[in-house]
């Protein structure tokens, strides 16, 4: 006698797999944020208790006023004029320190602007990277006065 068994299909239902996959894609696409993960490197010198003494006269001092105006070695100067001013000095002494000293009330963006400009010294024809120094207020009070 032949039995007529009603055998169920032994298949895994995959019809909804694409739906699940696209749902996950949408989730990742929405949660992925392309953030600004780039910036200027700002290598900090070691916190030395006995730092090398740099005479103010030997260095170039760039002061940044709260309005964004620049005073380079006591003279007002535009941002694009700094590198041409530094060029002859740095050709004589490439290690000459260039000190950036913003006023405490100066917006941070002006300091970054000057630092960015000085970091591009080599693109403006300088042989070596500029020896930039940004002393903190604590260092200025400790070592300058």
């Amino acid at each position: 006698m032949k039995l007529d068994r009603d055998r169920p299909d032994d298949e895994i239902p995959t019809s909804s797999m694409a739906d699940i996959a696209f749902l996950l894609i949408v989730f990742f696409m929405i949660t992925t944020t392309f953030t600004a993960t780039r910036g200027l490197d700002f290598a900090l010198p070691e916190d030395d208790d006995d730092p090398p003494v740099v005479e103010k006269e030997e260095s170039v001092l760039i002061e940044i006023l709260p309005t964004g105006e620049l005073i380079v070695d006591q003279d007002p100067m535009q941002l694009h004029e700094i590198i041409p001013y530094l060029k002859p000095k740095l050709e004589r002494n490439p290690k000459k320190p260039v000190i950036i000293r913003p006023d405490t009330a100066t917006p941070y963006k002006y300091m970054v602007q000057v630092y960015d400009e000085l970091r591009q010294g080599e693109d403006h024809g300088l042989a070596e990277p500029i020896n930039i120094s940004v002393p903190t207020q604590r260092e200025i009070q400790s070592f300058w006065y």
Binding site: A36, T37, R38, G39, L40, D41, F42, A43, L44, P45, E46, D47, V112, Y115, D116, T136, Q137, R138, E139
Partner: peptide
Amino acid sequence: DALKRAKVRDVYLLS
């Protein structure tokens, strides 16, 4: 200054 005192060497200014 706090990062300097904590002996941090590599700092990036996000821009």
